[in-house]
Nucleic acid binder design. Structure first.
Lengths: 104, 104
DNA sequence: TTGACATATCGTGAAAGTTCGATATATAAT
DNA sequence: ATTATATATCGAACTTTCACGATATGTCAA
């Protein structure tokens, strides 16, 4: 977890919003998990298309945003079939909060 | 305090270091307050020249960095004669920590 | 195996950030 | 007034980021 990469990822309104939306996925993405097989759940995960729709940016842009946020450690992803589900990486996020409290 | 501006300001290693250095100014800037008149103290404040020396960047760059960090709310400044003392804006910083805890 | 769909990657022009030297401004000392 | 010093601002070359359309890859269904 490189703080600078995290801060860069958070320096963009759309990306910041995505992170916030994923805090309450069921609230911001009503049709969440629609493509998942029965019995499988990606808790807190939302597929790229749903995020794109809400973010109102192009597919490539959103895909790159998500990849960047994952590299920074803010998100993690799971693939089910043709769908990639992204969710918050709460472990990194709590380490980040700790970093903030002690180092900043 | 615009979170995005804060994150942009923190997206640079030198600026991030400046913020950290100013957490313990007496440790990182031994000759701190050398120019101040007796009886006056800018608690936690360090002048631009001292910061520049430690940051190893040009005078104009450091001046701009400090100005940017002040606009983002991370720093505040006081002028004494020809010296400008910058110190952390702890009020914004604690609001920022709170923002981090509740919104991120 | 072909077609349809979700996502990832590539290439690009425009916009913004970086960092500097030169110069301006403000204050202090002579 | 002139000079010296500290800081701020300007202008410019360079790099990075932004955001997109086009295209590639991967997966499922027919």
């Amino acid at each position: 977890m490189e703080p600078i990469d995290v801060f860069k990822a958070l320096s963009n309104e759309t990306r910041l919003n995505i992170l916030k939306w994923l805090k309450e996925p069921e609230k911001h993405f009503p049709k969440q998990g629609a493509h998942l097989p029965k019995g499988v759940s990606v808790k807190g995960g939302v597929c790229v298309g749903d995020i794109q729709e809400k973010a109102k940016a192009s597919q490539s842009t959103v895909s790159q945003y998500l990849n960047m946020m994952q590299n920074a450690g803010l998100l993690e992803s799971v693939r089910y079939g043709q769908w990639t589900y992204y969710r918050r990486n709460e472990e990194t996020l709590s380490r980040l909060a700790e970093y903030f409290k002690t180092e900043i």
